[in-house]
Design a binder for these strands. Sequence first.
DNA 1: TCCTGCTGGTCATGGCACCTGACCAGTAGC
DNA 2: GCTACTGGTCAGGTGCCATGACCAGCAGGA
Lengths: 367, 367
Amino acid sequence: MTSRKHHAPHRRALPQRVSLVLQTAQLLREELQAGQWRDHLPGERELCERFQVSRPTMRGALEQLRREGRLDVAHGKRRRILAPRRCVASGSWAKTISLLSPVPLRSVPPFVLCWTDLLRAHLSREGFDLQFHVSQKCFAAQPASALAALVARGPAAVWVLLRSTAGIQRWFVEQQRPCLLAGTCAAGIELPSVDVDHRAAARHAAALLWRKGHRRAALLLPSGTYGGDTETEAGFREAFTASANDPGEPLVLQHDGSVAGVESCLDVALRPPQPATAFFVARTAHVLTVVTHLLRRGLRIPEDVAVISRDDDVFLEFLTPAVTRYVSAPEKFAQRLSQAAIQLARTGFAPRKPVRLMPAFVAGETV
Amino acid sequence: MTSRKHHAPHRRALPQRVSLVLQTAQLLREELQAGQWRDHLPGERELCERFQVSRPTMRGALEQLRREGRLDVAHGKRRRILAPRRCVASGSWAKTISLLSPVPLRSVPPFVLCWTDLLRAHLSREGFDLQFHVSQKCFAAQPASALAALVARGPAAVWVLLRSTAGIQRWFVEQQRPCLLAGTCAAGIELPSVDVDHRAAARHAAALLWRKGHRRAALLLPSGTYGGDTETEAGFREAFTASANDPGEPLVLQHDGSVAGVESCLDVALRPPQPATAFFVARTAHVLTVVTHLLRRGLRIPEDVAVISRDDDVFLEFLTPAVTRYVSAPEKFAQRLSQAAIQLARTGFAPRKPVRLMPAFVAGETV
DNA sequence: TCCTGCTGGTCATGGCACCTGACCAGTAGC
DNA sequence: GCTACTGGTCAGGTGCCATGACCAGCAGGA
């Protein structure tokens, strides 16, 4: 209420569940501000009685206030009330949500472009403005200074991170800035995230290739430590070792993302005496490189080599032969992302639990 | 809550669950009162999309309104609006700008997707809401009824038309609805429009192919009467006849847009005794089909056949060999489009003079 | 010193609202 | 008649919340 009252009377455009926890937290804040209690809060059970909610709910609300720095908690003792440190005034920039990307809008893949637009549509309906920020430097090895500059320059209620590196994620955790990953967290980091379930897709693809008789199947990924790619590799290995009585190592090829890089990777994998007979390819753009390169080498698809794409984009339909792939719904992706972003913008917190969307298998002619 | 309403304005003291059904019903009531819809309500599924709730929830809300006597419902037909149809406050829908497309957002090419998002960003900053409408029927031979239904259902200050047919354009001219073409006008129609200068690109490409010695160059287009494609053909012929002392007819191949259609077109063009040695291809998606089909036939690019793409999309960079093409700036496109749209929305008029953006030639390895 | 009654911390269980996807039947335009 | 849309219905799954129980730390009194 404190912040909303200062805004224009913006009626909610979308029905949404209002969690009891948030309501309770808000009521507690008001009571605190009114000076209802002096030094310590009453016990949890008494508060439950007073507000007619269950203990887990009340504890959620109290935890929220603790995170805001209004309460101090110790085992066995009642919660101490702290001086209300002026919380960040949700002023002019509370209505901006920023998206950080390593590449400009015109270069992002169609799937991402699509959910970005849907996200913007959702947010705009709720009165938020989505700003697209491009910064190469933030994706370098030492992103701290670039990130600090960026955040100072374009203040936002929430940062949505695209293709974020572990370094970026760590920075946001340390700075305690509200942020949201469009992707998967790096190892050891817990941030709210939305992503396609690449692990499941990889497992399914590897099992399929195995069933089809492929014993030399390769996974082709860009190098670098993206959480989603790590998951892909894990899923691929899982299915591989589960299928084989004598699990040989599956081939995992890492390239630098350039066309030449992908080509040389392929050439290595195809070298005798044990050439790869199947490729599971991450990133749709590289599927194009793989298919055209294989065709140029005179290999037939799928007779000589099988290809499966981990992701989907419109243009894959237009390749001949049609590419076997896993498709995800951008609408769902945008929906989950916008829900989390709005919650994060309004309350400052969002559930850490990763949201994973199950992709659908689409059979093509490349297996 | 019911009893509290009779009391003095007393802020809520207890947290309580508010059912989504009730919230949705309330929002529907407000939209109805604002005159958002005329005669009938949109379908349940569309409403669900709009309000981001599930069908059971939406049905609960609709049932509530039916009990209140505001709606009449019959199986198989849309819900009829009964009650006090307030006069449409023009303010309520003057802030909506609609975009009409034959294909869903997830299927439009990246370039279009990109300027769509940029357009939405511009409009949102000016307080407009961009709605994306998909309707196959409006792109059929007799679009009148479908267009009337669409326009009645989703009122908008301006309609932005994507891949519009001559029939659609004529309807908007006749109805005198404010509209704006993202594309080129059909013959004999004058509507404000923004498009890439395809004629210039085609002329340049044809001249280039001629200089390189190609005497059997083919233009590959989807069939149908799109203004932009007509311009492309005109430009291609212009350069061809200008170059040749004895102007033979340039090959113009029309296909149905499907992969198989493109393939059979190519096979025809490559047939002896005079096989085509170069293809100028409209639509990036079909460039993929062309390149992969040629490679599968064992043809070398560019040694045996040259390929030039009229348009650009991100993914063309990832083909090997890299495709020679014409690129346009989506930022410029969106900027011109939003300027015209906002002017049209605010004043009701926009200059008829077509806006044409000059594409840039990017040399690849396919010529 | 032990006991008792408070405090916060944690867990398993179950109910309920809601979401998802699917299928059916009626309607309308082609 | 066919197709694409409409409303009507249902089963299965998920997430939030309530309930009640148990544990561990802290205090004060017998």
